[in-house]
Design a protein around this nucleic acid. Structure first.
Length: 203
DNA sequence: CTTGAGATGTTCT
DNA sequence: GAACATCTCAAGA
């Protein structure tokens, strides 16, 4: 597996389709991270869409603030926020400049740098739990507020076609996790049956 | 495997 | 003060 095979997706991927289509299209692509010690990456298996203009559960629905500013910027950037006093969450911005949109990356199937992930997450951790959940994958990939606003075609954090993605997979939808408004909208996308998808049974 | 509860700090009302 | 796009641990089945 070479770096060449993990070339970043073009900006048109983010600019030329609406948020819900980006959320669906991100399933099966690879999120990659370059740190000093090497390459860390995984296949995106779960996403959620948030559209500020119409979505009461989206950051940005009640206007722009210092925290959610990246959602209002250009598409194809990182929007990182800190929540629950402990965890970071990574989003891909969508929609044109001035409109708030983002896709939350909720889970990865780890493919590269599993030992580097364990250094950050815990040495005895099962592969299944390295990136299963938005807070967990940020810790595994060392994503922090320092990445907020970064272009997702950059040298340190980017999204690419998945090499050898010949195997077929399907995409299912469901209500989003952990929100209290618009709870019946099917704006969560995931690979059904994949072990690395997050969420508790009753949700 | 499942379930319940506590942690922790920023943001907004 | 309350809410929050969550996680970990411990105990039960």
């Amino acid at each position: 597996m070479t770096i060449q095979e993990l070339a970043p997706l073009a900006s048109a991927f983010y600019d030329d389709q609406p948020t819900l289509e980006v959320a669906r299209a991100l399933i099966g692509r690879t999120l990659a991270r370059r740190v000093a010690a090497g390459l860390v990456a995984g296949i995106i298996v779960e996403t959620e869409a948030y559209i500020g203009a119409v979505d009461p559960s989206a950051h940005g629905y009640r206007g722009q603030t210092a925290r959610n500013g990246a959602m209002f910027g250009p598409a194809g950037r990182a929007y990182v926020y800190f929540t629950y006093g402990m965890h970071h969450c990574l989003n891909v911005t969508t929609e044109p400049q001035g409109a708030a949109g983002a896709v939350l990356i909720r889970a990865l199937e780890p493919t590269h740098g599993l030992e580097l992930m364990r250094e950050r997450r815990g040495s005895g951790l099962s592969t299944r739990n390295l990136c299963r959940g938005p807070g967990r994958l940020c810790q595994a990939l060392a994503v922090t507020l320092a990445d907020n606003g970064a272009d997702l075609r950059g040298p340190a954090l980017w999204i690419a076609e998945t090499p050898d993605s010949a195997c077929a997979f399907s995409i299912a939808t469901s209500p989003r996790i952990g929100i209290s408004q618009a709870t019946d909208w099917l704006w969560r996308f995931y690979v059904p049956g994949n072990r690395y998808v997050s969420g508790r049974p009753w949700r």
